[in-house]
Design a binder for these strands. Sequence first.
DNA 1: TCAAAAGTGTTTCGAATACACCCATGT
DNA 2: ACATGGGTGTATTCGAAACACTTTTGA
Lengths: 227, 227
Amino acid sequence: MGHEVLAVVLQVRDHVLSVLLWQRARPPYEGGWALPGGALGVAEGLGPSIRRQLKQKVDVRELTHLEQLETRGAPDRHPLTRVLATAYLGLIPAGVDPLTPEDTRWHPADRLPDMAFDHAELVDSGRRRLRSKLSYTNIGFALAPPVFTLSELTDYYRAALGYEVSATNLQRVLLRRGQIQPTGASAPPGRYGGRPAALYRFRVRELEVTDAFAVLRPPGRIAPQVG
Amino acid sequence: MGHEVLAVVLQVRDHVLSVLLWQRARPPYEGGWALPGGALGVAEGLGPSIRRQLKQKVDVRELTHLEQLETRGAPDRHPLTRVLATAYLGLIPAGVDPLTPEDTRWHPADRLPDMAFDHAELVDSGRRRLRSKLSYTNIGFALAPPVFTLSELTDYYRAALGYEVSATNLQRVLLRRGQIQPTGASAPPGRYGGRPAALYRFRVRELEVTDAFAVLRPPGRIAPQVG
DNA sequence: TCAAAAGTGTTTCGAATACACCCATGT
DNA sequence: ACATGGGTGTATTCGAAACACTTTTGA
């Protein structure tokens, strides 16, 4: 009974949430698109394995976040052999364009090509995970470059969430939660003028839950201290 | 490389969130307590497997909810062989007391005995999952019997969340969200009198997200229709 | 009549949102 | 001047929480 690890690697590219896929050259699912990944090594942990596999597709130094999604084990998920798959969600910040192999392409996450195995479901699972974590964690840090303007950040959120986001409200929510802070610098205005945009950074660039317990929260909670 | 499935089965028993464990009779971890589960069959899906394994410990008809938690694959998680484990969260409603084998006991989930392997971490993972889902889904249905009073329900929430919960506020939150509805009947008062408690039921007894997007919600959202 | 338990009315609070307006820059 | 894009001030909304008070029962 084989075991493989897969990754749903997402990045906002050109205003569109995109997923990294490679095209299969041989059966099964010849010509179909698949998630990067491969067989788990005999003495290899799951996390280390997916990092190793991804090295062959992207520069893993660009990976700002990696978390386990779910494990699929339906006996018929592979038409020929029995193979379990543990899927991970990986995020790459906007703005970089890692080199990828010939057979590998970025695809819009909401318009997938013909997908191999159950990989389309796994992509959806990754998108849902990202969307919900955007609302109660600081996971935006993994979509954004180290320094960014608020309108850029708004664009990443819009692409990942799939609907319009107000820059004004996004700013206030993230500031109140202490997720972002101004760097003091500002970006030059665009071609046709406009006020220069202040530059921000995420205060912490690893996953933190910033808004647990939207409801049924513990009684008499202390007000969060300002950062 | 073996693969096993495990279950963190939780139930509120006597006002305490409890987990079902069995005591190992032989090494490794002889005398240590472990989660129910066992090896995945060669042509068996993960979900079907954990249901089959649980049959040996509890009456699975009592299981009101089952969902995948996570997969552990550290090479040294088993001292002798390499075995991956996929853990599930299972819930049993308060009030029933399923027959269990000799070696099996319920333990308070916040005061675990000596645990085998990485099972203590898996129990914590299950508790955290339950706690967070209580705040944005109707998962309370899986902790409660089909019909209950509000003070009983409050007790289940208090036990699972680990802090005091106001019956008044719980009632309003769950009514507003359309999770619960009065049956019309009421429970007889206790030994020393008191107003009889109205009986409620959950409107839907399978998992539903009732409060997605606590923040950054889609613009111009329609108000939820009353049930 | 009182204690016990359940339930309702009302107020307060605060986060999130919506919207009007002001600021800084290039042409 | 004025168009463009960024940012702030302020009002509104609404769910959640807190708390006082009423209802219904048994002793």
